[in-house]
């Protein structure tokens, strides 16, 4: 029996891109949380400044749905 999987898109910004990627498809099992992806990418939770899921602010405990667009930012500012 095959395990069901979903595909999501992950986008990384600023220093998170170093040694990783700018944008990549990731496969995960249903129920995977944002925190699981952060852990898979070996990003320390304390380094996370902002998380956006489908262009909205999100929390690490939120689950990911098929086709989700997850964006991860370190703490940044400007203006």
């Amino acid at each position: 029996m095959q395990t069901e999987t979903v595909q999501i898109t992950v986008k990384l910004f600023a220093s998170f891109r170093a040694g990783r990627f700018v944008e990549a498809k990731q496969t995960c099992v249903p129920g995977t949380r944002i925190a699981d992806i952060i852990s898979r990418l070996e990003i320390a939770p304390k380094d996370i400044g902002m998380i956006m899921l489908d262009n909205r602010h999100a929390e690490p405990e939120q689950p990911l749905h098929a086709g989700a667009r997850l964006s991860l930012f370190p703490l940044l500012g400007g203006g």
Partner: peptide, 19 residues
């Protein structure tokens, strides 16, 4: 760290992502 490395223009991608 953020401002000295990327300048204020680091906001282009952030604000774009926020719509």
């Amino acid at each position: 760290q953020g401002l000295p490395t990327y300048g204020t223009a680091v906001l282009v991608n952030i604000i774009n992502e926020a719509g």
